[in-house]
Design a protein around this nucleic acid. Structure first.
Length: 615
RNA sequence: GCGCCCGUAGCUCAGCCCGGAUAGAGCAGCCGCCUUCUAAGCGGCAGGUCGCGCGUUCGAAUCGCGCCGGGCGCGCCA
């Protein structure tokens, strides 16, 4: 048990009291301890009496009295009395200032009160999922930022984390670009040596357009008897598209057979794309590197074997010429091979699960992928389980597969976020704009700092704003992207958290200037209400991480950090540190500041948000 | 048609898993607070039929059922 978490301690004490008072009750009873509803009544409350009343055949107030008589809360809280009971049977608990200080001593360590896990798990996080020849855009932002935060969170909690970037680097669309690029290079239209991702992005779109046959248009033209000229144009378009597609298919076959020319072109596309993406991750502060890439191509050789395995063991079956895995509870079967013998993305996802569990040793695999893929993952997870791919060598039970689904980023018009011209907004352009908008504010507030420093600060604030906005609300929901709101420099934003930390660090800068030494062993004095609120907030840090990890919801950490920053802001206003009335108070407050700064920095680091010394 | 997600203050959102006291934030509005550690801050006021109905319960934003409204998905694309 966490010996520094008052909630855990009180839960323990009340559970014991209830067990002693009602020994005939079966199983442990949850004492329902919660933070106090009103600070004036108490710091915590026990809500168990009401729910127990019926089970023990007493009225709730009687139950509360019985619990109060049995509960021993020393030394952390004031003794309970008749007056601790309120309303129908709420039991209010008030912590002792001294106890608060003692508890804080326990979290004042490098781990900040986060205990090592009972058992270390291997957690694979599937994140990012960029596609070759496509610019990173807002669609990848969430998959990268949320996945990175989850990966960091599990690492912080002491687990072994393996990041997997399931890059879309295989299949017909990629073959289409490869084919087109080879043509462009051969004709000299593009310099292969100086290829950029923008070039590839353009080639991708052109190739796609080239292969799109307007069959419906042709059909309609025939039906409505359009003129011969229009008809001929449409026929030509369709024929051309079919030809382009056939060529792309041919390229795909050559790629699969490791044809040196095609493979070299494909490799070039992969290198150019990944180099730019990895630069983007670095700029964003996401811990994702080349080694974490495990694209679809890396599974291509395994797919036939997977399907054979599924067939031979009767897991997959024929259906309309295709191969499907039927799973209980889901109407739609999971398609693993097309009628034409081609594989689908479910097939490579199955290969992914098998490798992650068997080779990488995953106890959990977490997919940070768009919520629109929910059905797909439900199918694939069930199929993998049915196939036994989730069975871990040398461990009981199945690995846990979880889809950390996230919603769409919407524009302020409520529709999926796009540029004015309807294009996807490039991630780099997004960061540029955020940094640009911050720069003027930084110049205004810190005119003395050198220009490069101002730029560096503005960039960090912009990134903090973007990432915090993405992480701070419920993953599963769509959210509205708004520069104005995230950069408002007010309220529930990334900049607010950075600002709180900057103020902490500023105090220590000033302390040094004034020759004030801080004593790390000075006694903590928790007297002012603002000090108490801050102390209570500091103690909640480990629980906030645990809760976020349990639910795969980073926004819980955001919520927590915002509350901590708020508690600090109030403290900052109410409790002078360097001008404290006496040295004991000054030293105690310096320690509170130090602890606050460390928790804020640690929490921001867990979220992957950059921190600053000044802004 | 079936499935998933969402509906809480003018706006953007927490709270729902695990039911408890007058439902919380931020923005916008109004009133205060910088000769003192960064005012990107703090304190206060005002603002809500928790989509609707029924049910379970001593007690429902929270659990169940049924509606209404919005979004997304649903075998040979990835």
């Amino acid at each position: 048990m966490a010996i520094h978490d008052p909630l855990a301690i009180l839960t323990d004490r009340f559970r014991a009291a209830i067990a002693a008072a009602y020994p005939h009750l079966e199983g442990p009873v949850d004492p329902l301890i919660a933070p106090g509803k009103q600070a004036s009544l108490g710091d915590f409350q026990c809500n168990a009496a009401m729910s127990l009343a019926k089970r023990v055949g007493q009225n709730p107030r009687q139950v509360a009295q019985t619990i109060v008589a049995r509960a021993d809360l020393s030394p952390i809280a004031d003794p309970l009395t008749e007056r601790s009971i309120a309303g129908p049977g709420f039991i209010n608990v008030r912590l002792r200032p001294r106890a608060l200080a003692d508890l804080l001593e326990h979290v004042d360590n490098p781990a900040l009160g986060v205990d090592a896990p009972g058992s270390t798990e291997t957690v694979v996080v599937d994140l990012c999922g960029v596609n070759l020849a496509k610019q990173m855009h807002v669609g990848h932002l969430r998959a990268t930022v949320i996945g990175d935060a989850l990966a960091r969170l599990f690492e912080r909690l002491g687990h072994r984390v393996i990041r997997q970037n399931h890059v879309g680097d295989w299949g017909l669309p990629i073959a289409m670009v490869t084919h087109r690029l080879m043509g462009l290079t051969a004709s000299g239209a593009v310099d292969g040596a100086r290829l950029t991702l923008d070039d590839l992005d353009r080639a991708y779109r052109d190739a796609k357009r080239e292969c799109e046959a307007d069959e419906e248009g042709l059909e309609a033209a025939r039906r409505y008897g359009l003129g011969p000229k229009a008809l001929a144009e449409l026929e030509e378009q369709v024929a051309g598209a079919r030809e382009a597609e056939a060529a792309a298919r041919q390229t795909l076959v050559r790629l699969q057979r490791h044809d040196p020319d095609v493979h070299a072109a494909w490799k070039r596309i992969a290198d150019v794309t990944m180099a730019e993406c990895i630069a983007a991750f670095r700029r964003l502060g996401c811990t994702l590197c080349e080694r974490d890439s495990a694209g679809e191509s890396s599974y291509s050789e395994e797919l036939a074997g997977i399907v054979d395995d599924l067939v031979s063991r009767g897991v997959a079956e024929q259906s309309d010429g295709a191969l499907v895995v039927r799973v209980e509870g889901i109407e739609e079967p999971c398609l693993v091979r097309k009628r034409d013998g081609g594989f689908l993305y479910a097939t490579s996802d199955l290969a992914g699960i098998r490798r992650r569990v068997r080779k990488l040793g995953a106890d959990r695999v977490i997919y940070t992928v768009d919520a629109r893929q929910s059905l797909h993952f439900a199918q694939v997870f069930a199929a993998a389980r049915k196939a036994g791919y989730t069975l871990r060598p040398g461990a009981p039970g199945h690995a846990r597969l979880e889809h950390a689904a996230f919603g769409t980023i919407l524009g302020e018009d409520g529709r999926p976020f796009k540029s004015r011209s309807g294009e996807n907004v490039k991630l780099s352009a997004l960061i540029d704009e955020a940094a640009e908008r911050c720069l003027s504010a930084v110049r205004q507030r810190s005119p003395d700092l050198p220009e490069p420093e101002q730029r560096r600060i503005a960039e960090a604030i912009g990134i903090a704003a973007i990432k915090f906005a993405d992480l701070c609300n419920d993953r599963a929901r769509d959210y509205t992207f708004s520069f104005d709101r995230m950069l408002a420099f007010e309220g529930f934003t990334g900049p607010y958290l950075l600002y709180a930390l900057v103020r902490v660090r500023s105090i220590f800068r000033k302390a040094q200037e004034r020759g004030v030494r801080s004593d790390p062993a000075a006694p903590l004095l928790i007297n002012d209400p603002a000090e108490k609120t801050l102390a209570l907030a500091l103690l909640r840090y480990p629980a906030s991480l645990a809760s976020a990890a349990q639910s795969l919801e980073p926004h819980r950490v955001c919520q927590y950090l915002y509350e901590l920053a708020g508690a600090f802001a109030t403290f900052f206003d109410a409790c002078p540190v360097l001008q404290a009335t006496d040295s004991a108070n000054q030293q105690s407050r310096l320690r509170l500041c130090d602890l606050t700064g460390r928790v804020l920095a640690d929490g921001l680091h867990v979220l992957g948000i950059p921190t600053l010394d000044r802004m």
